[in-house]
């Protein structure tokens, strides 16, 4: 059985329909990279996975558990226990600006998971050390570079020991020279075996980190394959067109 199973997902914003029966599976050792034209619903899919969006139909399972059961008119059911196993990093960092790096990392473990302050602090310092951010522990977000902020955001999510990590264009807001440090951090996580769903425009990075690349368009999966197949030998015309466009722009 798949680790993540999205079945018949229906998502609408008012009258705007994003998904009308979207299916996607992911294995427990997979790193799924989602690609597709802007506005095709990549962010929406991750937000649904995080439980940030109300879905009108379909189900999402995670591991052995029912996670989200969609229903119209705000009657969706969401299992909070399962939600706790999912972590997410956003394009615009969304760190808490009034808290130090340590404060950002420790808030959720201490205030909602009942972990002792000293314990959370040790764990936070360990993570910061691992990411080469130990000397930034007492800095405020406004004192960090974009790349540092994004790595702090990753560390903040990891504090809660997620079983699945979601990354929504986490390098898109960064200056080019800062992209690599964030991508390296994600590669390190990948090597440690973290299942991930990643949205990115960086096809080179996608090729390196993905076990499976999913090309979606107009609310449907057009093609899903390991990176060397999807990039090297795409089967669908639309995939080819899309790749030709983005690779051409990338130069």
């Amino acid at each position: 059985m798949a680790f993540v199973e999205i079945d018949g997902l229906i998502k609408r914003y008012g009258t705007l329909s994003i998904f009308e029966g979207f299916d996607l599976n992911m294995g427990s050792t997979d790193r799924l990279v989602l690609i597709g034209p802007s506005g095709c619903g990549k962010s929406t899919l991750l937000r649904c996975m995080m439980g940030l969006e109300d879905i009108a139909g379909g189900t999402i399972r995670l591991g052995d558990d029912d996670y989200i059961d969609g229903a119209p008119n705000g009657k969706m059911k969401l299992n909070r226990q399962v939600q706790k196993e999912v972590g997410m990093v956003f394009q615009h960092y969304t760190l808490f600006p009034h808290l130090s790096v340590l404060g950002n990392l420790c808030l959720a473990p201490v205030r909602s998971r009942g972990i002792k302050k000293s314990e959370a602090r040790d764990k936070a310092l360990g993570l910061l050390e691992r990411f080469g951010l130990a000397d930034r522990a007492n800095f405020y977000p406004s004192q960090l570079s974009g790349g540092q902020k994004q790595r702090v955001a990753i560390a903040r999510a990891l504090m809660l020991d997620p079983k699945l990590m979601l990354f929504d264009e986490v390098t898109s807001a960064l200056d080019p020279e800062l992209v690599v440090e964030v991508e390296n951090t994600m590669m390190e996580l990948a090597e440690a075996g973290m299942p991930m769903m990643i949205v990115t425009h960086d096809m080179h990075f996608a090729r390196n980190i993905a076990t499976q690349v999913v090309f979606q368009e107009r609310g449907k999966v057009i093609e899903a394959a390991p990176p060397k197949d999807l990039f090297g030998n795409p089967q669908q015309d639309r995939t080819r067109d899309f790749l030709r466009n983005v690779l051409h722009i990338e130069g």
Partner: peptide, 28 residues
């Protein structure tokens, strides 16, 4: 709104979100 999203993603209960994340920023 993204601050609220971050709180949800971190599983913060509403009370914790209000007192530790939203209020301090509003006051500042």
């Amino acid at each position: 709104a993204s601050q609220f999203d971050a709180c949800t993603a971190l599983g913060l209960p509403n009370g914790v979100r209000t007192i530790f994340v939203i209020l301090p920023q509003a006051v500042l």
